[in-house]
Amino acid sequence: MTNSAGKLAARNKIAGGNRMELLLFRLKGRQLYGINVFKVKEIIPCPPLTSLPHHTAEVRGVAHVREGAISILDLGMAIRQPPMENPRENFVIVTEYNRRTQGFLVREVDRIVNIDWEEVHPPPKGSGKNSFLTAVTQMDNQLIEIIDVEKIIASVDPLAQGVSSELLTDEVKAVAANYHILLVDDSSVARNQVERNLTETGVQFTSLTNGKEALDYLNGLADEGKNISDEFLMIISDIEMPEMDGYTLTNRIKQDPRLSSLTVLLHSSLSGIFNEAMVKKVGANFFLAKYDADELARVVIGEIKKAEAAKW
């Protein structure tokens, strides 16, 4: 087995077991922050930066790395901390989110840890809607704050993408409201994106924030004797979520005869071969990388048309 194949197998095992690898880093002070290792392409000393006109202050400039020219975002400034002094003395975490490569300027990188998603929890309710945290966990008696990177990117470079009008035919509009979708995502920004998409398409939806909450909800309906296929056209789920990830949620759904007929679309800022392998392993019906409004709408509309055809 090649080294890359070995790493892929190891990562499949981690994700399939409701576990994640978390890259820990510091900004100002001793507080530890984390992001999923699967989104990290490399960590480098901060290269020379070329300033950009007309960009928000958080974007400290553009750097040339192996990916080409990428924007370097001061992660501390993005979460309302003072700017990093002397960027060249700090580090850049090069990541890929939502099909885009960008660098995050941090003071220092600490280590990589392996964590059970059950040990990762939603941020405290008192953190408020403007918080840039998506989850928290604890290790060695120290709180680790997991940053909602999608929210940060959206605050600096928002996606303004709606569903193309040619997809929303009169045929779809006439029947879409008869269908209900379960949406599961811990990121408020990602949920809002998909909710706008579903609203434009015309379907009803219920939004939940993590896999455990979704599984409990579905089990509750099944325990009441309801046919899940009658309740929902499909489920659209993120992969990275506290308490239970999307892979584990999908696997539990597909292993339960009461739920297994439910169509599952995994919708994630993670991408690549790793995801394709895991999607097949857990039995998901679709995988889409975030975020393309038309791609998502096409899958939803395809399921609506399939359900309509089955009536005849």
Rank of each mutant, 00 (worst) to 15 (best):
S261A: 15
V136R: 10
G128W: 01
M278S: 05
I115E: 03
D157T: 14
E276Y: 11
I301K: 07
L52R: 02
R99N: 13
E58H: 04
W117M: 15
K129L: 14
S229H: 07
K311S: 04
E118F: 02
N3S: 13
I147G: 07
A309K: 13
I236F: 08
I304G: 11
A15N: 15
R66M: 15
L133N: 12
V279C: 06
N18P: 06
H55N: 13
L23N: 09
E118M: 07
I239D: 08
I273Y: 13
E276I: 09
T56V: 12
R11A: 10
E240L: 12
E195R: 14
A15V: 12
D148I: 01
K7Y: 14
K306E: 04
E85T: 10
S207C: 12
K129H: 08
F91T: 12
K281A: 15
G103T: 04
P242K: 04
L22C: 06
N114G: 10
L221F: 01
G246A: 05
R30K: 14
F287K: 02
W312K: 14
Q142C: 08
E108M: 10
M1Q: 15
C46D: 07
R11V: 10
G68S: 04
S237H: 00
G16S: 09
T263F: 07
N86D: 14
L218G: 02
K280H: 12
N285Y: 00
Y97P: 04
E243F: 05
W117F: 15
T101H: 06
N18T: 03
N36D: 06
L22M: 04
E96V: 07
T263E: 06
G76R: 06
M77K: 12
D170H: 11
F286E: 10
P47K: 00
A309R: 09
V106M: 00
G103D: 01
Y179L: 09
A154N: 15
D216S: 11
D157N: 15
F104W: 05
T263L: 09
G225I: 07
I235N: 05
Y217L: 00
V299D: 05
E276C: 12
L259E: 00
T201F: 04
H180A: 01
I304N: 00
G211Y: 08
E118V: 08
E213R: 15
N275A: 05
I273M: 14
R80H: 14
E85S: 12
T169A: 10
S207R: 04
S207N: 06
Q31T: 15
A190E: 03
P83A: 03
E303I: 11
